[in-house]
């Protein structure tokens, strides 16, 4: 099939239809927030650690399909990972977990990556 660099793939659409882990964690160990001033997207990420690794993650999002899918996927990706491992999580990996994003939506994976790092601030 010819490459479609414009539309969302089925994986992304499935995340938008049923985003994973929507919500907040009251006693979160790390909260990351981020906005994209150009398009107006706003996101929050809540992380709960058990020992060194993430045991729970939730997110809230007011934004387009791509950022919704990216944040949804991030809440799965971060589980079981240490803070150091998460600092190395790249936006390419986030996009890859979705089977890729349309070219004009790749900045959404970058925003998701920034929010993960933001949630780890102050954590050793």
């Amino acid at each position: 099939m010819a490459t479609d660099d414009y539309h969302y793939n089925e994986t992304v659409l499935a995340h938008i239809a049923e985003p994973h882990n929507i919500g907040e964690i009251g006693d979160a160990d790390g909260i990351g927030t981020g906005t994209n001033p150009v398009c107006g997207d706003e996101v929050s990420l809540y992380l709960k650690f058990e020992g060194d690794t993430v045991s729970d993650a939730k997110m809230k999002v007011l934004g387009c399909g791509a950022i919704t899918a990216a944040m949804s996927s991030v809440t799965d990706l971060v589980r079981g990972k240490t803070a150091d491992e998460l600092r190395e999580l790249t936006h390419e990996e986030i996009a890859a977990s979705l089977g890729g994003l349309p070219k004009h939506k790749r900045h959404c994976a970058q925003l998701a990556q920034r929010v993960v790092r933001n949630a780890l601030e102050g954590r050793g």
Binding site: Y6, C39, G40, C64, A66, H104, H107
Partner: peptide
Amino acid sequence: GSACSSGSAEP
């Protein structure tokens, strides 16, 4: 008409 809907990053 919201952002990034038609190949552009802006609304």
